[in-house]
Amino acid sequence: MTTLFYILAYLAIAGFFCLVFLKVKSYLQASPLHVRWEIYPVPHEGEKASYGGSFMEEKEWWTKPRHVDYFGDVKALLAEVLFLQSTFEHNLKLWFRSYPFHFGMYMLMGGTIIVLLSAIAQTFGASPDDGGMIFVGNIINAVVLVSSLCIIGGGIALIHHRRTNEGLKRYTTPEMYFNIGIFVVFGFFGLFAWIVAPSYFVTARGFLYNLITFNFAPQPDTWFALHLLVGYFLLIWIPLTQMAHFFMKYFTYHDIRWGDEPTTYSEKNKRIIPNALKYAVTWASNHITGGAGSKTWLEVATSNPAAPKTPREWNP
């Protein structure tokens, strides 16, 4: 049973990374190149970003070198991820509920990384009882308490808001209640583990130490074990649901909303476009294939359904 508990941990971690990989791969393989579909403001536009301006405000912009302010992108993404800026600006009532919930998760994720580093340090001979470790332990114990309360409080508030707001209620599916609810359960188990354990940090570090050293020692704390089991489930479940937005947001922001790179500056895109035009189109409407087989995008774009005898010659 103890071994199974550890095997589940390995499977959950591996499963999480595999599912994230598959999601990202699926996004990247959906198309060799999509159209530009940016929305301003685009934060990498430097000074222009402050009012939503773009390089297209410049006379003959294609004759000038392209400037991309990557720091602007990072700053905007951090503001969005760390503070849920869009929700704050456009849906404040929801933000008051959603932010504690997300903040709790961020703290827990950050705490997990620190505990993992502590466990790694222990494998390299760091004493579990030295001052530095105790100091880190005190911080982690505080972080876990606050984060558990944030997840529980934020989660319950979110469920309540979705139950009582008529607009949200119509759109909230059973799965969405389940998703928030399972986080609340996760938070409660974490809180109980924190209460019963002399030091949550020591318990968590011990588990991670065992995990990385393949020492399948029994898990002494039932609440902590339940907390972990729910955590394993979440690692697999998150990438399978709309909660995968936490990593797919990188693409919806960077690649779509801010994806304004003109073909002028992209040798790669210049190569892709003619190849993409070779895809076979099977749209059945009269002005495309008329239901008769397929044509390439090139054939479609160079034909004129209204005056078929006079398309302009085009032989790329």
Partner: peptide, 9 residues
């Protein structure tokens, strides 16, 4: 992808 490469992602 074939029918909607321009917008699919």
């Amino acid at each position: 992808t074939e029918n909607n490469w321009v917008f699919l992602p």
